[in-house]
Design a protein around this nucleic acid. Structure first.
Lengths: 297, 297
DNA sequence: AACAATTACGCACCACGTAAGGATA
DNA sequence: TATCCTTACGTGGTGCGTAATTGTT
């Protein structure tokens, strides 16, 4: 049974006329007749008393009418409930980001977004990449921003920024007066690493392996966060390779120095990940456009 | 929106599985998938979170579910309400009859019916033919039994009995020892009539006109009911032509006598009239069969 | 004449089933 | 391999509009 048929039945009852109901609904008169007739077939009972070309609700119709009204209004209510929920979701944006992106790159971007779309409430969740992606999968967040490669057919992945991994060393260092080094010179230095499971560590290792230098490097120190590494380098404990976005400000403020590695350019994409969905979300789309168009580094 | 689709949605939610819901509903798995998908299209929102090939109700779905349940149960309730009403109507039979039929013919027939179908409550309304037919038109009665011709395309008319109009005279009368008279002899007698608007009067007149005798008859007395005529004939005030069903018992008891008119046989059909309907009613059909098959005179 | 409801008919679309595809444990 | 959901495709049924019919004021 079609709810629209029940709605039409109510309209016919309210107007007392099939032709009026047809006119108001922008359908043909026979279509309404057919709907009423079909209704009578499903209930296996007449609902109207046809007399002198007019319709008079009979006892069966009188029983059906209030229930039909209630079904129709319930249906409307259900649409409103879902719509309200969507609108509420629409007015809030839950973003998940990996540590590097979440801590160093996103804050100013969010500020920009809020400036233009202040009625959207933004929630930022910072966690490691696997957790962020699981949150995306479970609809806990609407959007994930991560560095590592993402492989999941339910996800829609696109690069939104290119990040560079750069070599940094303390201000007081034998490289202080140089602009460039050879990659072999890394082997002579005390290199500070992230923990082995870190996405950034993995990508740095794959780069260094490509250049044939990985095995000759000493595992001098492992630290659990980029911030710890930065502090260690600042304190003169060693050198490290880190994401440019994480140290941009420190470089400008002279906390430590960047030095180029000759003929080596370590870069990676930053990925914007959305769940594939048949239904678009305006606020999400707007934010994605912003993030793709505004240079954030 | 189809209520069956909402029912299917609830079933899928309850079972947590499209394939189980399909199995239970005896439809193919893809059909259920399509229904769920169509539901999501009408709400322009996903209702489930598809993860690892399984379905998890999401927030929209959680909002929809109770309302869908309520719509489905309302629909069931509406069907039950109408069905209960039909069953209640089914258990009572409202019959309308014209005076002659209602007073003299129907009582014993109703007794027979009640004997066999005692759970059916029978209501008998006796009125003149036009009123009876209007009651039928307005669904006040389910069945009309009348003598006159009925012309109405909304009615289903069939003869259920043949009634004979017979000539009666007082026990003490010059015809007392005869078995048959010539129709011309009527002119010599004091004829008692029903009022001019009576259906029976009309049909008697048309018979007599056919035999060319009408104009030569004296309008000796007019009475407003068959009972009054019977009493008048019994009292020896004159003769009359009346329906056999109305006087059968009186003839047997010797209240007055019947006499044959040579070469004249006045008969008419008694009509069983139903409203045309797409939906049959068992108790009504049963009664109609009874009335058509059982000789009632 | 004008209006209301029904019936008839042709067409387009939709819901279904079968079959195939892809993912998961 | 077995299970589950989805996609693709062909077909039968159904809902719609146009047009014609019937009945009413």
């Amino acid at each position: 049974m079609n709810i629209e048929t029940l709605r039409m039945f109510c309209l016919v009852v309210d107007l007392g006329s099939i032709s009026q109901a047809a006119k108001l609904s922008y359908v043909s008169q026979p279509a309404v007749t057919k709907q009423i007739r079909q209704l009578e077939e499903t209930y296996k009972a007449t609902l109207f008393n046809r007399v002198e070309g007019r319709l008079l609700l009979n006892e069966n119709g009188k029983l059906l009418y209030p229930i039909a009204k209630s079904i129709v209004s319930d249906f409307e209510r259900s649409k409103e409930a879902v719509l309200d929920n969507i609108n509420q979701l629409e007015s809030q944006l839950k973003i998940g980001a990996s540590f590097t992106i979440g801590e160093y790159l996103l804050p100013k971007l969010l500020g920009q977004y809020k400036k233009h779309y202040s009625d959207t409430k933004i929630t930022l969740i910072v966690d490691n990449t696997p957790n962020v992606l699981e949150s995306l999968s479970n609809d806990v967040i609407d959007l994930a921003l991560v560095e590592g490669n993402v492989e999941n057919k339910n996800f829609n992945v696109e690069a939104f920024e290119e990040d560079q991994l750069i070599l940094i060393h303390p201000m007081e260092h034998k490289w202080s007066n140089r602009n460039v080094i050879n990659i072999q010179e890394l082997a002579e230095e005390k290199m500070i690493w992230r923990e082995p499971t870190s996405g950034t560590r993995l990508i740095i290792e794959s780069f260094l392996k490509e250049y044939g230098i990985l095995d000759s490097l000493e595992n001098y120190m492992e630290l659990g966060s980029t911030q710890a590494i930065k502090s260690a380098v600042e304190a003169g404990l060693g050198i490290s390779i880190v994401s440019r976005v994480a140290v941009q400000r420190d470089l400008e403020q002279g906390v430590f120095k960047e030095i180029e590695i000759k003929d080596a350019y370590f870069k990676r994409n930053l990925w914007l990940v959305r769940k594939k969905s048949r239904f678009s979300r305006q606020s999400l789309d707007t934010f994605v456009e912003l993030i793709k168009n505004v240079p954030v580094i």
